[in-house]
């Protein structure tokens, strides 16, 4: 069922977590394999988008990744972010206890707004390069992930460690959950003219 451009499917992935845990850095490492030092990054406002192709078992998938702002004042209309997401990555900073403790809140938000109960969730502990400042042990995080039935991985956007694995693991799990993507092969914005016209006919009251 490969669509136009040879994509097997388009998957929507969401990055959430406290501010300054490195969501945007993870994404930058994953899509462009670069890393910006602390003073060169700005807080994300609203949401940033990235598109990345991924080969998986010989098939090509398009990942559309929504990188959301961690700071609450920059988050607006949060529910819209979750619409149609197939995978959600919850990021915390292994050297910051608060970011880990707040995962509960993020799970709450997720369960409130995420319309699909099958959505694949993954907890990612970032900044493991700061080993000596680590305050969340792998064990503790693993236990938490097991309890909340999510995938878990540690990584470092700075050193590359685990970044690719995280996204691959997530995609693997999404593909193992057919209900997530088989019904609607591509939530793309491609417009088919005839379809558009017929859709417009019903229920358009403008």
């Amino acid at each position: 069922m490969a669509g136009i451009d040879g994509y097997e499917a388009t998957l929507k992935i969401l990055l959430i977590g406290n501010s300054n845990v490195g969501k945007s850095s993870l994404l930058l490492r994953f899509t462009e394999d670069t890393f910006l030092p602390q003073d060169e990054v700005a807080a994300t406002i609203g949401v940033d988008f990235k598109v990345q192709d991924m080969m998986f078992e010989g098939k090509k998938y398009k990942l559309t990744i929504w990188d959301t702002a961690g700071q609450e004042r920059f988050r607006t209309l949060t529910s819209s972010y979750y619409r149609g997401a197939q995978g959600v990555i919850l990021v915390y900073d292994v050297s910051n206890r608060e970011t880990f403790d707040q995962l509960d809140n993020w799970f709450n938000e997720l369960s409130t707004y995420c319309t699909n109960k099958d959505v694949v969730k993954m907890i990612v502990g970032n900044k493991v390069d700061k080993e000596e400042q680590r305050v969340i042990s792998r064990k503790e995080a693993e236990a938490y992930a097991r309890k909340s039935h999510t995938l878990f991985l540690e990584c470092s956007a700075k050193t590359r460690y685990g970044v690719k694995d995280a996204f691959e693991e997530l995609v693997r799990k999404i593909l193992e959950t057919p209900s997530l993507w088989q019904k609607k092969p591509s939530p793309s914005n491609n417009v088919n003219v005839t379809q558009t016209e017929s859709k417009q006919d019903d229920g358009c009251n403008c």
Binding site: R83, T115, N116, K183, K184, N189, V191, V193, Q195, T196, E197, K199, Q200, D202, G203, C204
Partner: peptide, 24 residues
């Protein structure tokens, strides 16, 4: 219910598309 809603949403999305991209 879900698929109904999904269709509904997609329909809205189509409308946005139809006006936004302006194909027709």
């Amino acid at each position: 219910n879900e698929s109904l809603n999904e269709r509904e949403k997609r329909k809205k999305k189509w409308r946005w598309m139809a006006t936004g991209v302006g194909v027709v």
